[in-house]
Computed example of a mutant assay.
Amino acid sequence: MDELTLADELALLAHDDDGTRRLGQPALGYGLAGALLVELALAERIDVVDKKVTVLNPTPTGRPVLDQALARIADDKPRKPAHWIDKLSKKLTEQVLDGLVAGGVLRREEDRVLLVFPRTRFPTPDGAEPPAETDARARMTRAVTDDGPVDPRTAALCALVKAVGHDRKVFAHLPRAEVRKRLKTISEGEWAALAVRKAIEQVQSAITVAVIVPAASS
């Protein structure tokens, strides 16, 4: 499989090696949609101008999921990230997982709980953590335990994990207070181009509202 996207990495982090999902919906879907926006910003395809997503370059990236999102954004008027996070999140989890299965990173397993309730899981082919996920975890751990500069992709992944509230599980082996402080520093740091930082800021805000507000009113 080609180099994984941020959405791919987030999907892997959201599942145990036995295929059990540890990050529920709609948080995962929103996080994956936010990952697409950030990835497109990293690829210099979009920017956030006056708090609205604007296409800088409609040229496809060669990655189907990203290019479908880019085409939808290009065919519309500039809209806030929250709009696109909601629209792009529809069936996105399944699409990203299907891509990981097609690439041999995960496999699909269907069974029934108590012989009655259907369940679909996405375990790894050999029961071990995929190398790509191991690499992502190692990069993120270095980022939150060191005080030096963080590369843009790792910083973006850290920010996305924080936005969907999955940081407690991803960094369960590290002191909670120190992790939260460092993640805040990373999210606000001068680690990437202005367009990417603006995208991260707006995506974090949109995901937080999308995830927390419905839960608070339920």
Rank of each mutant, 00 (worst) to 15 (best):
186 I>M: 03
162 K>H: 15
19 G>H: 00
124 T>Q: 09
147 D>H: 12
92 L>D: 02
218 S>L: 02
19 G>T: 08
119 R>P: 01
164 V>N: 05
217 S>P: 01
80 K>H: 14
109 E>N: 12
164 V>K: 07
84 W>V: 07
80 K>N: 08
93 T>Y: 00
44 E>T: 15
82 A>G: 11
199 A>V: 09
47 D>G: 11
136 A>V: 06
127 G>R: 10
183 L>A: 02
146 D>V: 13
72 R>E: 11
167 D>N: 12
167 D>P: 02
195 A>Q: 08
1 M>R: 15
89 S>T: 10
140 M>C: 11
47 D>M: 07
210 A>Q: 12
44 E>R: 15
105 V>Y: 03
143 A>C: 09
58 P>A: 11
117 F>P: 12
96 V>M: 08
216 A>P: 05
122 F>L: 06
98 D>Q: 15
183 L>Y: 00
53 V>N: 11
152 P>A: 07
186 I>D: 00
195 A>D: 06
30 Y>H: 14
114 L>Y: 02
93 T>W: 00
110 E>A: 14
16 D>S: 14
38 V>E: 04
22 R>K: 15
211 V>C: 07
154 T>S: 11
135 D>N: 15
8 D>G: 13
96 V>R: 08
153 R>K: 13
46 I>F: 06
144 V>W: 02
201 E>Q: 11
16 D>W: 08
116 V>N: 14
70 L>C: 09
96 V>T: 14
69 A>F: 04
22 R>Q: 15
116 V>P: 09
144 V>N: 07
171 F>S: 00
32 L>R: 14
173 H>I: 03
134 T>E: 01
4 L>Y: 00
195 A>E: 06
135 D>K: 15
142 R>Q: 14
135 D>R: 15
141 T>V: 11
144 V>I: 13
121 R>E: 00
110 E>V: 10
84 W>E: 09
147 D>M: 08
103 G>L: 02
128 A>V: 12
129 E>S: 10
172 A>F: 03
166 H>I: 04
162 K>Y: 11
31 G>T: 07
139 R>M: 05
91 K>N: 15
156 A>D: 03
12 L>I: 09
171 F>R: 00
70 L>V: 11
211 V>R: 15
95 Q>N: 13
157 L>E: 04
64 P>S: 08
217 S>M: 11
74 A>K: 14
128 A>W: 01
53 V>M: 08
152 P>D: 00
164 V>P: 05
14 A>D: 04
197 R>E: 05
28 L>F: 06
177 A>C: 07
97 L>M: 08
17 D>W: 07
149 P>S: 12
203 V>R: 01
12 L>A: 10
38 V>H: 03
76 D>P: 03
203 V>K: 01
208 T>G: 14
11 A>Y: 04
214 P>I: 14
63 R>C: 04
55 V>D: 05
77 K>G: 12
139 R>F: 02
30 Y>K: 07
19 G>N: 03
74 A>S: 13
74 A>I: 09
114 L>Q: 12
172 A>W: 03
63 R>E: 04
216 A>D: 09
216 A>V: 11
26 P>E: 04
160 L>S: 00
146 D>C: 10
16 D>C: 09
56 L>K: 13
53 V>E: 06
196 V>T: 15
129 E>G: 03
167 D>L: 01
3 E>K: 15
167 D>E: 09
178 E>K: 12
35 A>P: 05
173 H>T: 14
200 I>F: 01
92 L>G: 05
72 R>D: 08
98 D>F: 01
120 T>A: 06
16 D>G: 11
149 P>I: 06
70 L>Q: 10
